[in-house]
Design a binder for these strands. Structure first.
Lengths: 232, 232
DNA sequence: GCAAAAGTGTTTGGATTACACCCATGC
DNA sequence: GCATGGGTGTAATCCAAACACTTTTGC
C-alpha cells in the first residue's frame, strides 16, 4: 500500500450501525429483520441499520437508527463486532458496527418505518439469505449473545415479565443446545433474585406452574458486592 | 438530526485501528506505547494506530499498522471495541476500532518506525496521560483482556516459552488481583496441556523450579472435542 | 382414575478449599 | 544448618449430576 494517499483522501469512508434485536417466542430465539424499500438490495431482507450522522456518538446513533426503522425505543443496546471488508457495500467504503438489544417481543410494538417496507421476527435458525454481509454479521453476533447469556443473567430481558421456571429453563436449553435436568436447574438459579408470585399459569391442561419475576434492582446490588458469580 | 444530509456527504469520515500490544514482564502486565512524532498530539504518548487504507480489510490493516509503527509482525490479533465519539479526533470524524495482541516481550523485537519516535513498555497500572481518548480505550480493552484470560488459556501467549508454575500463577494473581493457593492452583490447571520439561530454573538462590511449556496443538484438539472447560 | 407436567428430596462422586508438611538448593 | 521458595498430600466441604418420587391440575 502506497504512502501516496493524502490525509484528506482518507476521509472518503462512511460508517453505519446495524441494530440486531433479539427476542424469544414459541420456544425460539428470534431476530427482527426488515425488508429494504431502497437500493441497494431493494426488496431483500436485512438487519435494520443505517449511516451514522456527522456529530452523533455511536450509542445515540444506535438508538436513533433502531427507532427510525422499527419504532422501538429506549432499549439497552450492547456493542458488538465491527465489519469492514472493503467490498461489503457496493456503493462505497462503509464500515459497520453492530449494536444488539434483547427485548420482550410482546412488549415492544415494532412497526416498519422510513425505508423499512416490512418487519418480521424470524427464528434465528430460519433466517433467509440477507443483503450485504448480514448473514455473517448475524451469525457472529448470535454467538456473542450466547456467550453473554452464559455469564450474565440478561436472559430476563428476553423472557416475559412473568415467566414459569420451565420457560426459563427452555430458553437456556435452546441457547446452549443442551437438555438440562429440572431439579438441578432450579438449584442452580437459587442465587438469582427471582421472586415467586402468587399468580399461576392459566389455561393449561395440567397442574399450573407458579409465575416468577426477576428483580433487576436487587440484582444490580448483589452484583456490586460481587455476591453473584452466575454461570450456566 | 435532519434528513437533508445527502448520501454522498456522509462519505467524509475516516477510520483507524488502534493496536494494543500486551506483554508480561517483571510480574506485571505491560502495554506497548509510542511517542508521536506527528501532529496532532506531537510528542505525546499514544497507542500505536493509524488510518485504514481504502481497500484493506480490518484484520490485514491491523497487521500492517502494527508492523509499520513497531516492527512487530505476524502476531495473532483479537478485535476489541469501536470508539466513535464525534469529538475524539481534532482533525475530523475518525472512528476507531481496537485490535489487541498478546506477546512474549522478550521474543518480539519492537522498534519505533514511521512516525513513532520512541517505544516503551509500560505497566498497565502506570500508563501516563495519552493522546486522544486512548486512556479510555486502553482501560476498556484491558478489561476485555482480563475477561478473556478467565475463559481462554491465552495467558500462554504472554508467558515465556518455558515458564515455572509460579510465574504462571503470578500472572493470574496479577490479572485477577487475587491471591491463589499454590497447591490448589496446580490442581486446577491439571486439565491443561502443559508439559514438564527436564530443564530447571537457573541462578536462583533456592531450590530451582521445574520449567514447563504449553502445547498449543494438543489444546486445539482438546478444545474441538469440548474436553476443556477452563475457568480460573 | 389417568395423563401430564409441576415441584422436591436423596445419593453419589468429583471438585474446591484450607492447611500442613516435606524437599532441594545456595550460602 | 538455615533461609527460601518448590512441591505434594489430606481432610472437610461444597457442588453438580442422576434419578426417583410426590403433588396438582384437566379431563
Amino acid at each position: 500500500m502506497p504512502n501516496k494517499i493524502e490525509f484528506k483522501d482518507l476521509f472518503t469512508y462512511s460508517f453505519s450501525l446495524d441494530c440486531i434485536v433479539f427476542g424469544y417466542r414459541d420456544g425460539q430465539i428470534q431476530v427482527l429483520l426488515i425488508k429494504r424499500a431502497m437500493e441497494p438490495f431493494l426488496g431483500e431482507w436485512a438487519i435494520p441499520g443505517d449511516l451514522v450522522y456527522p456529530n452523533e456518538d455511536l450509542p445515540e446513533a444506535a438508538q436513533r437508527i433502531l427507532f427510525e426503522l422499527t419504532n422501538i425505543r429506549g432499549v439497552e443496546m450492547h456493542q458488538g463486532s465491527t465489519f469492514g471488508n472493503p467490498k461489503r457495500h457496493p456503493q462505497g467504503r462503509v464500515i459497520t458496527n453492530v449494536f444488539f438489544a434483547l427485548v420482550r417481543i410482546d412488549d415492544v410494538d415494532a412497526e416498519a418505518h422510513s425505508w423499512a417496507e416490512e418487519l418480521k421476527w424470524t427464528p434465528i435458525h430460519e433466517v433467509p439469505k440477507m443483503a450485504f454481509d448480514h448473514n455473517e454479521i448475524l451469525e457472529t453476533t448470535y454467538e456473542q449473545l450466547v456467550q453473554k447469556l452464559r455469564h450474565q443473567p440478561i436472559c430476563f430481558d428476553l423472557l416475559p415479565e412473568k415467566f414459569t421456571l420451565n420457560e426459563f429453563q427452555q430458553l437456556y436449553e435452546y441457547a446452549f443446545e443442551k437438555e438440562l435436568d429440572k431439579a438441578n436447574f432450579r438449584k442452580k438459579i437459587k442465587p438469582l433474585p427471582i421472586q415467586r408470585l402468587s399468580e399461576k399459569q392459566k389455561n393449561v391442561k395440567h397442574r399450573p406452574a407458579a409465575l416468577y419475576s426477576f428483580n433487576q434492582l436487587t440484582y444490580k446490588e448483589l452484583e456490586k458486592e460481587d455476591l453473584i458469580t452466575f454461570r450456566m
